[in-house]
């Protein structure tokens, strides 16, 4: 195997390890940090089911963002939804036909729309970048990394689109490479500049995920203003460090 292939195998194992362990570390940290007070943003659901629906609406429709600013909502939603479609389409490079997901990813809608989803990502990301550059308030709060995140995702979408619509890569060899990673049986990576760029950027995205604002994805599920049930009068909510401060009347 060429040095190039070895380098990509190593890169992907490294990126996957950082992504998995980093994210697990962050999520564990969020889960273990207590939420001592009931602080749901009201009006809030009074049942667990209601909370699940509230979170569901945030994840699927970006409900709060919709209330806030329609343009950011529109571009943000187009980008995320396109990313999801593109992700599903990419599963065909990582799964074999005996996978239970195969019927889903071989759906016409996933494969066809998935192909154009790259354009959706470009549109969404360009809109978000334009907003970051041209709206004074948003420019004021932006750090270099905020622009770089968008540019990274734009480059991922762009390099992907170039392979779909301009210069095809050898997808049979690509699939062998990807499956080789999964089965710990390294295979050569196709030697295509677009593909190698695409893969490098995706690996970079995986690496920065647990140390950047991309943590907003797990963060939402741990947000006390969104995930708490409004039942403070009916049930005493008390975490261990706070309970230690309790002392009875006669003490």
């Amino acid at each position: 195997m060429s040095f190039l292939s070895v380098a990509y195998v190593v890169l992907f194992y490294f990126a996957a390890a950082v992504f998995i362990f980093g994210l697990t570390y962050r999520i564990t940290k969020y889960a273990r940090t207590p939420a001592p007070l009931k602080i749901p943003t009201m009006p809030a659901p009074t049942t667990r089911t209601g909370v699940a629906m509230r979170l569901g609406r945030e994840v699927v429709f970006f409900e709060s963002l919709f209330k806030s600013t329609k343009w950011t909502w529109l571009f943000g939603w187009i980008f995320h939804f396109s990313l999801l479609l593109a992700f599903f389409r990419h599963l065909r490079y990582a799964l074999t036909p005996d996978s239970f997901l195969w019927p889903l990813i071989s759906l016409e809608v996933v494969q066809t729309f998935g192909k154009y989803a790259g354009y959706g990502m470009l549109i969404g990301l360009t809109g978000l970048l334009a907003r970051r550059i041209f709206v004074d308030r948003v420019r004021y709060i932006s750090s270099p990394s905020d622009y770089l995140h968008l540019i990274l995702l734009l480059a991922i979408a762009g390099s992907g689109l170039l392979m779909t619509f301009v210069s095809h890569t050898d997808i049979v060899q690509l699939k062998a490479f990807v499956l080789g990673l999964f089965y710990f049986d390294p295979q050569p990576v196709p030697n295509s500049w677009f593909l190698l760029t695409h893969l490098t950027l995706v690996a970079l995205l995986l690496i920065i995920f647990p140390i950047s604002k991309l943590l907003h994805a797990p963060g939402l599920f741990f947000s006390p203003t969104r995930n708490q049930v409004d039942n403070s009068r009916d049930k005493r909510h008390v975490v261990p460090w706070a309970a230690r401060l309790d002392s009875t009347h006669s003490d």
Binding site: R26, T33, A35, P36, S68, T72, G76, I141, P224
Partner: peptide, 24 residues
Amino acid sequence: LLGKYRSFQVYLDSCVKCGACTDK
């Protein structure tokens, strides 16, 4: 405080600077 308040920890990490709050 980061160890005592989940809100504090999660909110410091999660902001993507989308600007939704800027005029609120």
